[in-house]
C-alpha cells in the first residue's frame, strides 16, 4: 500500500472556460447532427424539395405576393421547426434515455451549459439550412425585401428559442420512443395545418383560426411579413414570444434529467 499523499493541485486540470466548454459541446452536437442521415433528410432535403415543388406548381395557393417569395419565407420557417423542434426533441429524448444528460451534468459542462450548447448548435445548423435554401431560392427567382432581413433574423432567433423550449419540454417529460413519434407527427401536422408553408389565411376557416395561435404560424407569418413586405409583424412576434415563455417555464419545472 502506498503512503497517503495530498493531491498536488498544480498538476490538476480545472475546468475549461464556460465559453470554451459551450462551444466545444455545440461543435460536437453540430457534428453529430450533420453525420445523422435521417436528420439531414428532415432538416435539409425535405425543405429543399418543398421549395422546388412549390416553385414548379401553382397549387396549393400561397395567397398574395410573388409565389417564390412567399414559399421561400415559409420554407425557412420549416427549417427552423425541423432543427429547433424535431431534431432537438429526438436527440435530447434519446440522450436522456441513455443517461447522457446525467453524465454531462457531472462534467464541467453541466446542465445549463448543455442547454446553451444545444441552442447554439441549433442556430449553427440553421445558418447552414438558411444558406442552402437562400441559394436555392435565389436560383428560382427569390428576391427578399432587404429592409425586412433584420426582422427575419429576429424571428429566426425568437422562433428557435420557442421551439427548442418546446422540444425540451417534450423530450424531458416523455419516453424516448414517444418523443420520436410525437416530434415527427407534430412536424407533419404543422407542415400541413400549422400555417408554415401554406399561409394560414389560405387554410380552411376553422383550421385558419386555430393556426393563428400556433408558434408555427407565428414564426412563418413573421418571416413572410419581413421578407415579402419588409414589415415587422408584431402580432406574430407576440404569439411566438408567448409560446417561448410558456414552454420555457414549463420545461424548467417539468424537465426530468433521468429517464
Amino acid at each position: 500500500m502506498s503512503t497517503p499523499t495530498t493531491p498536488v493541485t498544480s498538476t490538476r486540470s480545472g475546468a475549461a472556460s464556460p465559453r470554451r466548454r459551450i462551444l466545444a459541446q455545440a461543435a460536437f452536437e453540430v457534428g453529430s447532427l450533420l453525420r445523422n442521415g435521417e436528420q439531414l433528410l428532415v432538416s435539409l432535403v425535405l425543405p429543399a424539395m418543398a421549395l422546388v415543388g412549390l416553385s414548379l406548381t401553382s397549387s396549393p395557393s400561397l395567397g398574395p405576393g410573388r409565389r417564390i417569395d412567399v414559399a421561400t419565407a415559409g420554407v425557412i420557417a420549416l427549417c427552423v421547426i425541423s432543427s429547433a423542434f424535431t431534431a432537438q426533441a429526438i436527440s435530447t429524448g434519446f440522450d436522456r434515455r441513455y443517461a447522457v444528460l446525467r453524465y454531462l451534468g457531472v462534467t464541467p459542462l453541466g446542465r445549463s451549459g448543455l442547454v446553451a450548447a444545444k441552442v447554439l448548435a441549433t442556430l449553427a445548423v440553421e445558418v447552414v439550412q438558411v444558406g442552402v435554401i437562400a441559394v436555392l431560392g435565389a436560383a428560382l427567382g427569390w428576391r427578399p425585401q432587404a429592409s425586412g432581413i433584420a426582422f427575419a433574423v429576429l424571428f429566426v432567433v425568437v422562433g428557435t428559442w420557442a421551439f427548442v423550449a418546446l422540444a425540451l419540454l417534450l423530450a424531458g417529460t416523455l419516453r424516448a420512443e414517444a418523443v420520436l413519434a410525437i416530434a415527427n407527427l407534430v412536424w407533419v401536422l404543422l407542415l400541413g395545418l400549422g400555417g408554415v408553408i401554406v399561409p394560414r389565411t389560405e387554410l380552411p376557416a376553422g383550421v385558419s383560426h386555430v393556426a393563428a395561435y400556433l408558434p408555427s404560424a407565428g414564426l412563418a407569418d413573421g418571416l413572410r411579413s419581413a421578407l415579402v413586405a419588409g414589415q415587422l409583424n408584431l402580432v406574430a412576434l407576440v404569439v411566438v414570444l408567448a409560446w417561448g415563455l410558456l414552454a420555457t417555464v414549463l420545461a424548467a419545472r417539468l424537465f426530468r434529467f433521468d429517464d
Binding site: R12, S13, G14, A15, P18, R21, S32, R35, N36, F94, D95, Y98, A99, V100, L101, R102, Y103, L104, V106, T107, P108, L109, G110, G113
Partner: peptide
C-alpha cells in the same frame, strides 16, 4: 464547474452518447 472538474465520474449506466 470548477468543482465538477475536480471530480471524475464513471456511472453504471455509462451515459455516453450512442451515435
Amino acid at each position: 464547474a470548477e468543482h465538477r472538474a475536480r471530480v471524475g465520474v464513471m456511472l453504471q449506466a455509462g451515459g455516453l452518447p450512442n451515435g
